[in-house]
Design a protein around this nucleic acid. Structure first.
Lengths: 321, 321
DNA sequence: TTGTAGGCGTTATCAA
DNA sequence: TTGATAACGCCTACAA
């Protein structure tokens, strides 16, 4: 009944006779004994804790990512510390520092880090920091996966006779991912003989304002015949704008949005989308993180991730003549 | 330059001369020194960590709650450990035990705990466990706040001439909160001379199935003229069902749903809702939790919370004659 | 197979 | 005002 024996019993390391083992377990039950995580962390220099940085918790696309991290982490005995970047570089830096101060063993990033030097600093401090693109030879994993969906969408739209389309985004540049999405889109259209333009909505919220912007490109000589909504979060705003401008979808103009949800499907007309779920991405990345920590081999999960796909619904139709 | 002096300098407790104080801070900068959270926890018996139990992370209504907890916790120097109940009692129990094992100082619950005895056990273990209804004299805080919105909605519907309405829910009983919502609704209608019935959707997902259920109550002698959707998450499913059954909203039947979002506003017709945001609730509860931990006075924030309100939009109109 | 003892990095007590 | 020292609870090499 020494502390060492108890430790050996509970950790399963070291020899313990069956008899004492039983006695120890009985005592543990009786005394409601719970090992102190703090003491263990101090001794082992590992907190069994993983941090997740979510660029913007208010944005629902990251929720599946968060769930994916949780799932794998808990399965492997790690706790999950969640921090929110709130769409701000400064907040994100603060959040990462908080994770370091808490002593997390590793940090999972939902996207490419905005402050590379801080990440490097964390890594040099012994923290494993991974994002979906970590160690990718050919560019960004996320970009490559999404590219497939973008290609399929462009094909579909081109086949429907669209020759002039507009990409509607909140801002001109919106992080590395938004940038890549825009470039991918340009590449896709180029060579298909389609003209791509960009509508920047900015902080405008009022439906009439958005409507005015759309009206200008949809009702003019050589009008745009299809709109591509850059993010799922922007879609409701855009839809209200379309309504304010009395633009009929898909009669006057087709519509596609990035990101799927039950609401996109329930809308009338049902919205065509480029669908991509971050849950599996998170599972793969977290598995790799834990492999790093536990000294296992990195999983092949990332290589097997399913690419984004285009889901045509009612909001895309043939271009007006 | 002893460890004790460093500790005093950084913690601000105990006397330190201005000269040594400066020297210590300079050294801290130079050496990138970061105190070990584990060692501090071991010594102080506090982890500066708060757990949040989210009943179902996949349900977006809890995201504002999570953000509210984060906001206050981080402001006060606490880290946040998030666990997901996944709509399952067993998972929830596991999640709570995980928080205990991690050594959190306190746990914030988004709703009434499903396993009261486990919560009692945690409390007896010295963990502060609070939910929005903690210490409420007159019933449930959440129920009371929501009640105001329900009342307003019932008034509005009654004024529009609705005499027969149906409450559409996924399950007959769905946790303490769902139960209370149903009872509140019954109380509201009673005395207004309005007949309330209940439509249980169950695990049915196909629009035609849901449509059939709705069709049966909306198209019959003495039909229901208004539908009340129990949760925001059910709304898209219900809307697809209404469409499948070719029920015109609000022509054939009015519609109200609990929970607001940009999608509800963007839908055509725009959906009337009972709006209630859990962000402020979380802020208030977390402030109280931290007051418990830090020995301050419980805030009065909960008493000042704004009640739910009814937001009439296009989906509610006068009842058919 | 079991027990003893040292140390992980803090903070708090006490003596200088 | 500062420094030496003793815990906090766990793990683990080593001795028994």
């Amino acid at each position: 009944v020494s502390t060492a024996t108890v430790s050996r019993t509970l950790s399963g390391r070291g020899p313990v006779s069956e008899a004492t083992r039983a006695r120890v377990l009985r005592a543990v039950q009786a005394l409601q004994y719970l090992p102190s995580a703090a003491a263990r962390s101090l001794r082992t220099q590992r907190t069994m804790t993983i941090g997740v940085l979510v660029p913007d918790l208010a944005n629902p696309v990251f929720i599946p990512f968060l769930r994916g991290v949780q799932h794998v982490a808990h399965e492997r005995g790690y706790a999950v510390l969640v921090v929110d970047g709130q769409r701000s570089l400064a907040v994100e830096q603060l959040a990462l520092r908080r994770l370091r101060a808490q002593g997390v063993d590793a940090i999972v990033l939902a996207g490419p880090a905005r402050d590379a030097s801080l990440v490097a600093e964390l890594r040099s401090g012994g923290i494993v920091v991974l994002d979906p693109d970590f160690g990718e030879a050919r560019g960004s994993l996320l970009a490559r996966l999404e590219r497939a969906g973008t290609d399929a969408m462009c094909d579909a739209l081109a086949a429907l006779g669209h020759r002039r389309v507009a990409y509607v985004a909140r801002e001109r540049v919106s992080g590395a991912l938004g940038q890549r999405r825009w470039h991918a889109m340009r590449d896709c259209w180029r060579g298909r003989g389609v003209t791509l333009e960009r509508v920047i909505v900015g902080e405008r919220r009022a439906p009439v304002e958005i409507g005015g912007l759309i009206d200008a490109v949809v009702r003019r000589p050589e009008p745009v015949t299809a709109l591509i909504c850059a993010t799922h979060g922007l879609a409701p705003t855009l839809l209200r704008g379309l309504r304010a401008a009395a633009v009929d979808v898909p009669g006057d103009c087709s519509l596609v949005t990035y990101g799927d949800s039950e609401w996109a499907e329930a809308y009338r007309p049902a919205l065509s989308v480029v669908a991509f779920d971050l849950y599996e991405v998170a599972v793969a990345v977290t598995a790799d993180v834990i492999a790093h920590l536990d000294g296992g081999l990195p999983s092949q999960a990332r290589a097997l991730l399913r690419p984004a796909r285009f889901v045509p619904r009612e909001s895309t139709a043939a271009a007006r003549a």
